[in-house]
Structure formats: C-alpha cells, structure tokens
C-alpha cells in the first residue's frame, strides 16, 4: 500500500486510536470477530436460501439436498452452522471483556444494545436449528415453543407468533424461516450497525484517560490478519466436522433417545428439571437478563476504572456478572454431562 490515502476499511475507524484500545490483548478482537461471523452468516445464509424450502414436506429433504446433492452445499452449511455456534461464544466472551474492563462505563445505552444483540443471536441460533426439522430438533421445537405459553398474559399470543397456529404444524416451518432469515436478522443488522456507531459516538473503545495514540492503519492490519486467521479456522473446522443431521423429525412419535436441548439452552433445560416451567423457563432467564441490563445502572454507575481490567470501582458488577455467568455455565455443563 504505497498510497497513503485511507482505504474504505480505514475510514471505518478514527484516524488515530489509543494504543491501548487497539491492543489485541485488550479486546481480544471479540467484537470484531463477532462482526466477521455475522458477515459469514449472511453470505452463507443467502446461499442456503436458494435451496431451503420451509414446509413440512420439504424442510428436512431440502436440508438433505443441500448437504448431499448441491455441490459444496455441505461446506456452506457447515460454515453457517459453525459461525452461528461460535457467535454465541464470541458475543458472550465479548460481553465478559466489556464487564471486566469497565467497557460499559459511560456507555450504558450501548451496553443495552449489546445485550439486545446477544438475545437476537441466541434466538437466531434457535430458529435456525429448528429449520433443520430433524429428529434432534423435536425437543427444541416442542419444549422451546411450549415455554412461551408459560409467559403470563402474553403466552398464547407469543406462542402463535412463533408457531403460526394452535399447535406446531404446517405453518410452523415458514414461521421459523421468516423469523430466522428476516425478522430476527433485520433486527440484528439494525442493532449491530447502531452498536458499532455507538462505539465511535461514545468516543471509541473504552480506554484509560492518558495513553499514546497510533495510526488506524495498524489496527486495520491487525483486523485483516485476524479476519484471515478466523476464516481459516472456521474453514478447517467446517471441512472436518459436519453440521449434525439426524433422521427426519416425527413429532407424533416419542423420541427414541433422551432428547437434548441445543447446547445454548442446556442450562434452561437443566433448570427445568428442578423448578416449574414458569420459574425455570421464563422467570429465571428473564431475571438473568434483567440483572445484566441493570448492571451499569444499579451495580456500577461510576466512570472510574474505565479501560482497566478488573478495575476496583466495578468490583461489585464484576462479581455479580461472574456469578451469573458461572451459574449459566454450570447448568449447561451439568446438562451436557447427562
């Protein structure tokens, strides 16, 4: 790049950045990696749309046709699958980074937007999983949607919105399809763009008051390298491990083996063994979300410690967050070990 004029990608960044914010070991690039995964999901998702047919008769068989008949369909499907799984992880780790570096300080709105993104990512993963319409999604589909019914007052309405009828049936695949490829995706893109705009609006990535600055070109190069590395890793995983596909779903026959929730809902599934559906399936998850939402408002309103790992001013917020995260992880691991 002999030309020293800024490229498009450079223009997405401020001209100079605090060295601290740009350091890989500060953000671990988790937000950026999440953006990259979203882009991969969009591209592969569009390819899948050319073949997927959301109907009871064709949902499963079109997934099989993608996997086995369309050239490279298996690869595109694997990429989409793994990017989706990874996104749940990178977004969560990113959130943890934000908490432990005090990144939420003076950035409360963006914290809420980010939380919205996390919810959307999980819902997208869930709706996408159901589109497979194989025997392994039966639990997810029936239990997940029936949980909606437990929501006081709104339950039946939410259920109808999700399922498209009184029971899971002919209207359901296209319902989930609509949510997955449009409803939730548009919301994700909207919140995502807003989120990144807010980062700049809030004065860039959080950083300690006085730090040396460096050129954005360095950051763009790091991002480029990270992009290549993450894409390669995603590609290798997609070459070696296939997205699951079980025999077709038969919602009228009891599952042969114990059905497991998708891994990101294992925690909820585990909780459901101990408490009523309303408590474990609705109130508890909402409570966790509520605590997270309240974090910059109720747990740590200070501006000190911004940009410092494990800053003292945010101790309370950090501990509560860590406890909530550990609880979810513990339930998930317990569910996974069954």
């Amino acid at each position: 790049m002999g030309d020293s004029r800024a490229s498009f990608f450079e223009h997405l960044h401020p001209a100079t950045i605090p060295a601290r914010s740009a350091a890989f070991t500060y953000t671990f690039g988790l937000g950026g990696i999440s953006v990259l995964l979203v882009l991969v999901l969009l591209v592969t998702g569009v390819l899948l749309m050319f073949f997927y047919e959301p109907s009871l008769a064709r949902a499963y068989s079109s997934v099989a046709a993608i996997t086995y008949e369309a050239p490279y369909g298996w690869f595109v499907r694997n990429l989409h699958y793994w990017a989706g799984q990874w996104l749940v992880v990178t977004a969560t780790l990113h959130m943890a980074r934000v908490v432990f570096t005090g990144g939420y300080k003076r950035r409360r709105l963006n914290w809420l937007i980010g939380l919205g993104l996390l919810v959307l990512v999980i819902l997208l993963d869930f709706t996408g999983l159901v589109l497979r319409w194989d025997a392994d999604v039966s639990w997810a589909l029936l239990v997940g949607t029936n949980l909606l019914r437990e929501v006081p007052l709104l339950g039946e309405t939410l259920y109808r919105l999700a399922v498209g009828g009184e029971t899971v049936g002919a209207a359901t695949p296209v319902r989930f399809y609509g949510w997955h490829i449009a409803g939730l995706t548009i919301a994700l893109l909207f919140l995502g763009v807003w989120h990144i705009w807010r980062v700049r609006r809030d004065g860039g990535i959080s950083h300690a008051a006085r730090t040396p600055r460096l050129s954005r070109r360095a950051l763009v190069r790091t991002e480029g390298l990270a992009t290549l590395v993450v894409l390669t890793m995603l590609g290798v995983v997609s070459l070696l491990w296939d997205a699951p596909l079980a025999p077709p779903a038969d919602l009228n026959t009891p599952a042969a083996h114990e059905s497991a929730a998708p891994w990101f809902f294992l925690g909820v599934q585990e909780a459901l063994r101990f408490a009523s559906p309303l408590l474990a399936g609705v109130i508890a998850p909402l409570l966790v979300l509520g605590v997270l939402a309240a974090l910059p408002y109720a747990l740590d309103r200070s501006a000190e410690g911004e940009g410092h790992w494990f800053n003292a001013a945010g101790r309370r917020a950090q501990i509560v967050f860590a406890a909530a995260l550990l609880l979810v992880i513990a339930l998930t691991v317990r569910g996974a070990l069954r």
Partner: peptide
C-alpha cells in the same frame, strides 16, 4: 481527535 498523526505507512516501531 486530539491526536498527533504518526507515519501511517509503518507498523508500530
């Protein structure tokens, strides 16, 4: 931005 521009062509250092 209150920055002093550095040489844009170079890696840090």
């Amino acid at each position: 931005m209150c920055a002093m521009p550095t040489n844009e062509n170079e890696w840090p250092g």
